[in-house]
Design a protein around this nucleic acid. Sequence first.
DNA 1: CGCATTTCCTGGAGGC
DNA 2: TGCCTCCAGGAAATGC
Length: 283
Amino acid sequence: MPELPEAETIARGLADQLVERTVHSVELNRQDVLHGSPVVPCAVLRSRTITSVNRVGKQVRLRLSGGVCLSFHLGMSGRLIICKPTEPIAPHTHLRLGFEGNGTELRFCDPRRFGGVWIMQERNPGPVEAGPLNRTWIGRRLPPAGLDPLTATLDELVVALGRSRRLKPLLLDQSIIAGLGNIYCDEILHRAGVHPLTRANRLDRKQVGHLRRTIRHVLTEAIAAGGSSISDYRTSDNTPGAYQTRHRVYGREGKSCRRCRTTIQRFVLGGRSTFVCPQCQLP
DNA sequence: CGCATTTCCTGGAGGC
DNA sequence: TGCCTCCAGGAAATGC
């Protein structure tokens, strides 16, 4: 399940391969994975050059010449793979972008289709604010992007956490902080020693500072490991990440806490599996 | 406002 | 071996 570290790993891998490459061919195999613009993507993307690849929250965003922007959300099972055009086409390959030059293509594959692709026109000269091409909007709205967990300041986080909501659902709310998903949220809260049900506004400034450092620590380590591969996730080289072996609570119900040996517990919060060490994370 | 529940979707896991 | 059920979860919509 691609979260921030996986999206960052993929974006870095794609940047190496795609920046300054020009789109030569486009094949959209499922209309309904494309959102944002009713324009046939062929017509919009062909002959445009990729100027940058970066990550916004959990999204991988390609910027192309002319201010066109392609944003991929990988959902649960989405993959972005670089391969040769001659490679066999995996089932559920919804979009293929071919590039001029040395026979490379980018494929978006997403069996469960919780992900999607958004086409937008950036308003120049500016950063991120993006609107749909042709002022019409088709399909789902672009998922929200709140604060970036790696660059948010302490002041920004203090404001963001200044609500009575439970900490975990708040951290998972992409419109407030963009990039954390179920796995890293549980890992972060365990390392920070905070229970997921804690009311966010019960943390004082010092505790928010500690949470902020923990967020950055866990995400940075996970990026360095190439992300976590639980089931479908692969890097853009189609290799798995390694961080899943370092998980301290996620998926470890009944096993002993790596810090204090207490048995890890699982409960459901907001419809999601939540793993805690009842000793390290006192309510 | 906050929170739980339901929906979408497929492949993998486990039971029998 | 094969068939069945359940489960995973990001985000939006709904209802209390």
